[in-house]
Design a protein around this nucleic acid. Structure first.
Lengths: 227, 227
DNA sequence: GGATTGCAAGAGCACTGCTCTCGTTATGGC
DNA sequence: GCCATAACGAGAGCAGTGCTCTTGCAATCC
């Protein structure tokens, strides 16, 4: 290993360490992450952190990308065949919910209100769409296998807007099914956020998982997926 | 008007003025509201604001309660009869969406990620449930008028958890319909948040209203409401 | 061996929420 | 009408923040 490579590796390790400590702070203090506090925890001056992240927003962006990839990884693992498409759809949703319950602050970071003044850079949109594409892939396989109650186009304007998306990213799906996928994904995010942000308090307290599955089954049904 | 009342009125006006300026700051700077900046705009010392709000969180709470009531008022106006229950359901959803589009930062305040360290006091839960109860009321009227495809209990555990809620707040609805109402409300919040927080960028750009209506119609259908 | 580069530390700026103290002003009881 | 009381606003100050700039050190390259 060359000296340059060693240098790069040390730098990467330091970067990772900063992110780890930042994540820990995120878990206790929430989204108003203090760069100085992170630096203190690492035993270094706050200015030193700026060698690794140009700004606090840059650090947040790194955490956001990691979070997107973490949920998506969890979803990928859960959606592995063999299983019926509906089972995989539900497994995906459950995996996302469980990851969110385990990492509430990271969930808030990516699906909560955007940090004020923070503009998500291009690097985030790839990881951000992974779960959506996974749901689309599952539905697409069901379409291919004839396991879906095929639903007619409705002729709405948004349907034609979705046609290019369908073609590029979900080639197995007609535009309306892409709409259903997006709607299902939004429903997933909405259900998880609502549970996480306390909107469910004092109504469903015990069987939250069951209620969640009920909702996600509904989303699948709306998409024509029943098996 | 007695002197005491005058004093109270001046105080109420000042309180309102602070909230107005704070709302304006919210619209430009987002949720990290600066008390000092608000005070500067009002031409007074930052410490003076503390005569009216014990802390920044208290000010935020006041804004949150106002925001809940504002959406709910808009929803109430939109849901006024005469119209079919489905029309009123959709009108409620559209009103909520439109209010959110006009007041994105206030929406983020109430339905985005909770402000770190901020614990919502009891005063907020009343206003917070108004839109949900309105949806329940609309569905309940449809039930009473026999306009709903009555759906059988599914015997899930969350269903019995919802029974007391049904009895106290939505007496016209069976527990499963309460679940559908809550699910619909979550779907509403999810769809609005997703659109507002930029998850829809570069997929549906023109006919967002149409896509939103498609989703909310789906939620109504799931609840058995088709007319 | 000397020049260059990457790194860390420290001081400092402008800002934040919040507290405390200090005069001022208005209110309510006598 | 007088006077104690309470409400109010201003200012200073504390501890904390993101971020920048300068300085010194150490490793790397030629």
């Amino acid at each position: 290993m060359s000296a340059a490579n060693l240098r790069a590796r040390v730098r990467a390790e330091m970067t990772e360490e900063i992110k780890t400590v930042a994540r820990r702070h995120l878990a206790t203090d929430g989204a108003n992450l203090s760069l100085r506090a992170v630096a203190r925890d690492l035993g270094m001056a706050s200015s030193a952190v700026y060698r690794y992240f140009a700004s606090r927003d840059d650090l947040l962006t790194a955490l956001i990308i990691d979070a997107y990839n973490e949920v998506a990884d969890a979803a990928d693992r859960a959606a592995a065949p063999p299983a019926t498409p509906l089972d995989r759809w539900l497994a995906t949703c459950h995996a996302v919910r469980e990851w969110a319950l385990e990492n509430p602050h990271q969930w808030a970071l990516i699906y909560g209100s955007p940090v004020p003044g923070y503009q998500a850079p291009q690097d985030t949109i790839g990881p951000a769409t992974r779960v959506l594409l996974l749901l689309g892939k599952t539905l697409g396989e069901a379409y291919r296998d004839g396991l879906v109650d095929v639903r007619e186009p409705i002729g709405a304007s948004f349907e034609s807007e979705l046609a290019p998306i369908a073609e590029s990213f979900m080639p197995d799906l007609p535009p309306r099914a892409v709409a259903d996928t997006i709607a299902g994904f939004f429903q997933l995010c909405g259900a998880v956020s609502a549970e996480l942000f306390g909107q469910l308090n004092k109504s469903v307290d015990e069987d939250r998982r069951g209620f969640f599955e009920y909702q996600m089954t509904g989303a699948a049904t709306t998409a024509g997926l029943t098996a």
